[in-house]
């Protein structure tokens, strides 16, 4: 059963009762909240995530609720927490949902040290994944949103999770979060993309979320090996260039891009080495999204 199949009353009963347990990739999440405004947005944007019953072991137990009873009425602010003290400062109720999304990323980033976490968008086609590691602002989410609406299966727009045991990439099809100009770009590029509301004035500017395509959620337990690594960079007016990178340089770029390379130590070294030795690795500079998608399609035929 999926979240979209719950009625608003059932959804609310779960959120305010024992918690809404749902799956995203390998993780089982439990969310508690009494915020009315969250109901519609969860119903729409989390629509395809499977609901789990109360038996089962949670990975992350999250709460998003009023910071205090008083702050429900007086300049209302909400607080995110997960098994401990709040990691973020309280935010106005209008920004509750983006905070939930960041909170979930935070949970994964500080805890999921059983896998190597690349700061990368990952999409799959023909049984192999294309990894797009990049710093924020380099256009990886934009590219990821475009690719996942052009025949690629979405793994993640934020986390490239690799299991050290078998070097397989693990899908974690969370919402794609777009910022500022890229919101309009993707609206135009992929009319089928399902957008949530745009939140203005967050600490990252304007933010909007795209619901992961349903197929990426239904197939979220299918892992895949790496095929290609492409470091994307969007640059206004630049000519399209796709250049191979030497393996030793690629190694350093991937290692320093990972969230937890140091934590995993030797396992991380072996995992990155395997990735570098088994993939073709490029840098991609682009200004036009359509051209970029075309060249990636050709590359991965």
């Amino acid at each position: 059963m999926m979240i979209s199949e719950l009625t608003a009353t059932e959804l609310q009963a779960r959120l305010t009762g024992g918690g809404l347990c749902f799956g995203c990739g390998p993780f089982r999440l439990r969310l508690n909240s009494s915020l009315q405004s969250l109901l519609t947005v969860l119903h729409e944007l989390y629509a395809h995530y499977p609901i789990y019953d109360h038996s089962g072991v949670d990975d992350y137990r999250m709460t998003l609720d009023w910071a205090s009873p008083l702050r429900r009425w007086l300049r209302p602010v909400v607080r995110f927490s997960a098994d401990g003290p709040a990691p973020f400062t309280d935010v106005p109720i209008t920004r509750a949902f983006p905070t939930l999304e960041w909170g979930m990323n935070w949970c994964i980033a500080i805890r999921a040290h059983h896998v190597l976490m690349l700061h990368a968008a990952v999409v799959e086609r023909h049984g192999r994944v294309l990894v797009l590691p990049a710093a924020p602002g380099s256009g990886k989410s934009t590219l990821c949103a475009a690719l996942s609406h052009s025949g690629w299966r979405l793994f993640s727009d934020e986390f490239g999770l690799i299991r050290p045991e078998d070097n397989a990439f693990v899908p974690i099809p969370r919402l794609i979060s777009l910022k500022n100009q890229s919101i309009a770009v993707i609206r135009q590029f992929s009319p089928t993309a399902y957008f949530g509301a745009t939140y203005h004035g967050t600490h990252k500017g304007s933010v909007a979320h795209i619901r992961p395509p349903q197929a990426s959620v239904t197939r979220m337990t299918e892992l895949a090996p790496a095929g290609w690594v492409v470091f994307p960079r969007w640059q206004a007016g630049a000519a399209l260039t796709l250049q191979p990178i030497a393996k030793e340089r690629a190694f350093m770029m991937i290692a320093s891009n990972a969230f937890n390379y140091e934590v995993l130590g030797e396992q991380a070294f072996k995992t990155v080495a395997h990735l570098v030795n088994n993939c073709k690795i490029y840098t991609l500079v682009y200004s036009d999204l359509t051209q970029a998608i075309r060249i990636l399609d050709e590359l991965t035929q």
């Binding site: 089982r28 990975d59 040290h113 995993l264």
Partner: peptide, 17 residues
Amino acid sequence: PNNVAAQLRAANNLVRH
């Protein structure tokens, strides 16, 4: 359970680090 083992492994990786 699988995800128990995963959470424990994650914690132990952090400890070893």
